[in-house]
């Protein structure tokens, strides 16, 4: 029993790290830029498929983990500049609607390019094997996934909190008019933040493929969960997104041991409860 619990805890950590990465990206976009990006999961799926192709063509998994998020981020830059920024004045409703349309476009493009069958990728050979936990073998790759996720989140956090560029971004979010008066191109700044946000979703997608494989519609569930995590953690709170992601992942994994039927309903019930009782989220300030 204890080894089973430990393994589920570790699995929850893996899942939680994926949620944390995606939600950290969404909290940048939704919490800070105020764009309700319902295509977040579609960017995640795109990251997964791009990583698969890069790894297959170049033979290097490391390259896939670097190139796929960058490519997703660049696409995000374009989507923000050409479409979402122009819809900012029209309000949330139209931004939501645009991203809903974008989900269809991205999902169907994935099917056109890669086919409707699900992807399955073997874990790279140098990650073969795992740690023994009681009777179960916990794969090394999953530990690697958690480490990469943690490092990336730490790097983004440092960049936001401890660098000059990060300070400009935070100032731009606090008071865009003032910052643009200081001669900084706020639109470009926000575009970069949007790109970074979807790149984090892309990285999450790339990391999950060797664990769960990939399906064209793999993002739909993640979009919902990312919103749950962002709402629970507090919109715009980076720490909240990370903590919330890990919390939801671990809770889900443990619920599947104790009472599986409640694991999904419970997550969304928690979201509704937070929205009703504490709309600023557990870590939110606004």
């Amino acid at each position: 029993m204890w080894s089973l619990l430990t393994v589920q805890l570790l699995n929850g950590l893996v899942l939680g790290m994926i949620y944390a990465l995606a939600a950290a990206g969404l909290t940048l976009i939704f919490g800070m830029l105020d764009i309700p990006n319902f295509a977040h999961g579609a960017f995640y799926a795109l990251g997964a498929y791009l990583a698969y192709t890069v790894a297959e063509k170049s033979g290097s998994v490391a390259l896939a983990f670097v190139l796929a998020p960058i490519a997703v981020g660049v696409l995000g830059l374009a989507v923000d500049t050409f479409f979402l920024r122009r819809l900012a004045r029209a309000g949330h409703v139209y931004q939501i609607l645009f991203t809903l349309g974008a989900v269809l476009v991205i999902q169907e493009t994935i099917v056109l390019l890669w086919g409707a069958d699900s992807l399955s990728v073997d874990v790279p050979s140098y990650f073969a094997g795992g740690v023994e936990v009681g009777l179960v073998l916990f794969p090394y790759y999953r530990l690697f996934l958690v480490a990469v996720g943690a490092l990336t989140i730490a790097a983004v956090w440092l960049a936001l909190e401890r660098t000059r560029y990060g300070a400009i971004i935070r100032a731009g979010i606090e008071d865009p008019d003032m910052v643009s008066c200081l001669g900084i191109d706020v639109a470009r700044l926000f575009m970069v933040v949007f790109g970074l946000g979807v790149a984090l979703a892309g990285l999450a997608g790339a990391l999950i493929v060797p664990v769960r494989g990939g399906q064209p519609a793999m993002g739909t569930q993640l979009t919902g969960l990312s919103f749950v995590v962002v709402v629970i953690g507090g919109m715009g709170s980076f720490a909240g997104a990370v903590a919330g992601g890990l919390l939801v992942g671990v809770t889900q994994a443990l619920m599947t041991v104790f009472y599986p039927p409640a694991s999904q309903v419970g997550v969304f019930a928690a979201m509704a409860a937070v929205l009703l009782v504490r709309p600023q989220g557990l870590f939110g300030i606004r």
């Binding site: 349309g101 476009v105 169907e108 099917v111």
Partner: peptide, 11 residues
Amino acid sequence: RWPLILGLLFC
């Protein structure tokens, strides 16, 4: 793949 057309139209 008709949802692609729908998505483009909608966007």
